[in-house]
């Protein structure tokens, strides 16, 4: 698939939108007509051609503009990218995994040439060319995680494994769903999930941690998570919440379709071989409700899911102020017809 990169914004005038092809491949996360919490982990293996699951790191039409937005966020707040000192080997592991995957999966866009530790990287969409020594951070303009993190869509955190725990000791997070890397860096698996309601009591995190501690090299896994965002804003960080929080009060029956976006995270988990750390990729997709209801099944189902969402999650996901307006708007697209199983369009 030849990609045409869109020139668009995720702030101020918000010119972001999806092409019809991008709508069709949107990873709609709800597989049934009511809300069900599930860890829903599955192997992160090659998915159907053209789908967001085709490759480990999905590059799409928003690539160039998303990278520009990331650079702006990092310019304003360098603390969105942090790595504790013992994470250098894991940073190189990440750089290697991402570069190898991108060059293999998108040969028209990226090229990696390796001669021992002398590496040559070409990124055509961003017009970057770099020769560097693998393992020597002084040969790159940034530390390895930040260097490659500025060239791949999605947020990333890296977890060190110690004492049967995972510790979030590095990350580059510029488009997060309201959590702060600067605050959470150094926390263990239970701690950084501390604010998530309901799941702790259900034992979800104990089981997930046990699973991840045994995550195997070459056997990555993925899951989908979701929230909603007003305006196609990538930087919904707590750091800037006092600036974007008021967006949540601007939803009216007239503008729901343009303002409210379903935001889906495809989360990938990779065991990094040399450092024994785990790379966590959080690849976000935004879709306005106007565009979402062009797939009739999605309009019907989102209406039914939002109606059955528990109160705790409405608060946690920050939907309280506009959920009712959104459900009312979506009801126009729900004729009560049955829907097929699975998330894909009919």
């Amino acid at each position: 698939m030849a990609l045409t990169f869109k020139d668009e914004t995720f702030r101020d005038d918000f010119t972001f939108s999806n092409s019809p092809a991008a709508i069709r491949r949107f990873p709609f996360p709800f597989v049934e007509d009511k809300y069900m919490y599930s860890v829903n982990i599955e192997p992160h293996t090659t998915g159907p051609e053209g789908s967001v699951f085709e490759f480990p790191f999905d590059i799409d039409e928003h690539y160039v503009s998303e990278m520009r937005d990331r650079a702006m966020v990092l310019q304003e707040d360098p603390a969105r990218c942090q790595a504790l000192p013992h994470m250098m080997m894991a940073q190189w592991d990440m750089l290697e995994l991402v570069m190898m995957s991108m060059a293999r999966d998108y040969p028209d866009l990226f090229t990696l040439t390796r001669d021992g530790s002398k590496w040559h990287w070409v990124n055509r969409p961003l017009k970057i060319e770099q020769t560097f020594t693998f393992g020597d951070a002084s040969t790159l303009p940034y530390e390895p995680m930040e260097y490659i993190g500025r060239q791949v869509q999605g947020d990333f955190s890296i977890q060190d494994q110690r004492d049967n725990q995972l510790w979030m000791d590095a990350g580059i997070i510029t488009s997060q769903a309201d959590w702060s890397l600067d605050f959470d860096v150094g926390m263990n698996f239970f701690e950084w999930h501390g604010p998530v309601p309901l799941a702790h009591e259900a034992g979800v995190f104990e089981r997930a941690l046990k699973f991840l501690l045994n995550l195997q090299i070459s056997n990555p896994v993925r899951r989908l998570n979701w929230t909603m965002t007003i305006n196609p804003r990538l930087d919904t960080s707590p750091e800037n919440y006092h600036k974007w929080g008021k967006d949540r009060t601007t939803v009216t029956p007239e503008n729901v379709g343009q303002k409210v976006h379903l935001r889906v995270e495809m989360q990938g988990l990779f065991r990094l071989p040399r450092s024994n750390a785990i790379l966590f990729s959080i690849r976000g997709y935004l879709l306005s409700l106007d565009q979402l209801v062009t797939v009739p099944k999605w309009g019907r189902r989102l209406h039914r899911v939002l109606k059955t969402l528990p109160e705790e999650l409405i608060g946690y996901k920050g939907l309280s102020r506009y959920r009712d307006t959104t459900i009312e708007w979506l009801s126009k697209y729900d004729d009560g017809a049955p829907t097929s199983r699975g998330g894909g369009p009919d």
């Binding site: 013992h86 994470m87 060190d160 494994q161 110690r162 004492d163 045994n214 195997q216 090299i217 070459s218 056997n219 071989p273 024994n276």
Partner: peptide, 13 residues
């Protein structure tokens, strides 16, 4: 053989 698994890593700290 299986892929390598590490249940005995040195503590990086």
């Amino acid at each position: 053989i299986s892929e390598p698994l590490n249940l005995f890593p040195p503590c990086k700290l």
